[in-house]
């Protein structure tokens, strides 16, 4: 993972212009894409939020977690269960889902950050497995594998003059787009902020950062919580927008996928998660048509990336040509 490009007014405005183009480009897909790909694009934008949350911790802070499915699931169930069982309104449930993810991340962070390296990966994986098993243990409410399907009446937002029907394809796409854009802008801000620089410094040399007087633990904990909040946001949005809340999203597979997306797109790049998610989603979608064992590709991609392409797509582009890419 390379350090940061030299900063200047020129590179900053170029970077903001690029992000504006990406955000507007995604919006234009709303009118350009045929029905099938329109639905996929909405899903990808929500999953890219998940990947961006993962990237905050893995890319910028250099902490490889194998348990981010638990944060996604915390958002998914934190939002889905109150809607399904208590009839809460969508905005309140969305906020609850995010809060669940943040609290879980705080607890996991305080414990798991006592470890480093390989132990950190295994501890996060085990906590995530506990969360996954808990979904089954609470099967009376979650219905385990089968999951819960949120009905149309449960997915309607009425806030004064605003009326949103989350089962409507256009509303869904635009909400996914708005969420994605907000989190993308947030990521750019974090990457360029002093806090983001400290995270990168911790990734590059934690000892030295501590010697310079920064509290490494507090910064890492903030990164875990922030990452958990964003991933829970993705989970809550996924459940509410697509109306399905199931245990699969808590399985180890959903901890591996964001890692793969971020690795493919380029760790510690703001747009890498989107690119990685888009590519991988279509590769899997394409092969699923004729291959039952489509997860084989995930395995092959992981090995090839780690062997020959550790910086991912955008990471390589930044290294070779566009030094100003954030």
């Amino acid at each position: 993972m390379s350090g940061h490009a030299p900063d200047g007014a020129g590179s900053a405005s170029k970077a903001w212009a690029l992000h504006a183009v990406v955000i507007l480009g995604l919006l234009s897909l709303h009118v350009l894409l045929p029905d099938y790909h329109h639905g996929i694009a909405a899903r990808i934008m929500v999953l890219a939020v998940f990947a961006m949350g993962y990237n905050l911790l893995f890319g910028y802070t250099g902490l490889l977690s194998l348990g981010h499915a638990m944060f996604f699931a915390a958002g998914l169930y934190g939002a889905g269960l109150p809607v399904y069982h208590l009839g809460w309104s969508v905005p309140v449930a969305f906020a609850t889902g995010i809060a669940c993810g943040g609290l879980l991340a705080l607890a996991v962070g305080v414990l798991a950050l006592r470890t480093t390296g390989v132990a950190f990966m295994i501890v996060t994986m085990m906590f995530s497995q506990v969360a996954y098993l808990m979904i089954y243990w609470l099967g009376d409410w979650t219905r385990g594998d089968e999951g819960l399907t949120l009905s149309r009446s449960e997915r309607i937002v009425e806030l004064g003059p605003i009326f949103l029907d989350l089962t409507d394809r256009d509303t869904r796409f635009l909400l996914a787009w708005a969420l994605f854009s907000a989190v993308l802008v947030l990521t750019v801000f974090i990457a360029r902020s002093p806090f983001g620089r400290v995270l990168v410094a911790i990734r590059e040399n934690e000892e030295r950062t501590r010697m310079l007087g920064y509290n490494a633990f507090a910064n890492k904990l903030s990164a875990v919580v922030l990452s958990g909040l964003v991933c829970a946001m993705a989970g809550a949005a996924y459940g509410l927008l697509f109306g399905y809340v199931g245990a699969t999203f808590g399985s180890i597979q959903y901890s591996i996928l964001p890692l793969l997306w971020v690795l493919l797109g380029g760790a510690a790049t703001t747009l890498g998660p989107l690119i990685g998610t888009y590519f991988m989603f279509y590769i899997v979608d394409f092969t699923q048509g004729f291959l039952r064992a489509y997860m084989l590709l995930v395995g092959v991609a992981l090995i090839l990336l780690v062997l020959f392409f550790p910086k991912g797509i955008l990471g390589t582009i930044r290294e070779r040509w566009l030094k100003w890419l954030p």
């Binding site: 490889l64 039952r292 084989l296 395995g299 092959v300 991609a301 992981l302 090995i303 780690v306 062997l307």
Partner: peptide, 29 residues
Amino acid sequence: VLRRLNYNPESTIVATIGLLYIIQQSVLT
């Protein structure tokens, strides 16, 4: 795979996750 990664602990974990899916899905096939 592993030798080419020079047994870097983190890369090895990612690579063996890949190996996990390759073996599992080949058996499924």
